[in-house]
């Protein structure tokens, strides 16, 4: 199994909005490679008759009734926001200069 490349780590870091230094790229590439190899061992015992499992609990169709339940007030909702304006969450510029 090929090692995860520095470029791939850099790409993931960008998608996750993480600032990663050049040295860290090497460190994380190594660590992620270890993790991937550990997970890959599961694949070795997987057989065609075993479906991929995403949920440990054998439950399906857990539904809620379509009935309104009280939520938060506007004030409560905004109480944790760094900045708010006109009852809305205020966020910094979304698109940078391109």
């Amino acid at each position: 199994m090929p090692a995860i490349s520095r470029d791939e780590v850099a790409h993931l870091a960008r998608l996750a909005r993480l600032a990663v230094t050049a040295e860290e790229l090497d460190v994380f590439a190594g660590q992620l490679d270890d993790i991937l190899q550990a997970v890959a061992r599961v694949g070795e015992v997987a057989a065609d008759d075993i479906p991929p499992t995403s949920h440990a609990v054998p439950l399906t169709n857990v539904f809620r009734e379509d009935v309104v339940r009280p939520g938060l007030s506007q004030q409560q909702a905004l109480s944790g926001a760094p900045r708010a304006e006109d009852g809305r969450f205020r966020v910094p510029r979304i698109l940078g200069e391109e």
């Binding site: 009935v67 309104v68 339940r69 939520g71 938060l72 506007q74 909702a77 006109d86 809305r88 969450f89």
Partner: peptide
């Protein structure tokens, strides 16, 4: 979630 789904309410009043 059980928040109301209605158009036109005051902002951030149908949230949880």
């Amino acid at each position: 979630c059980g928040c109301a789904n209605a158009f036109g309410a005051e902002p951030n009043t149908q949230v949880c």
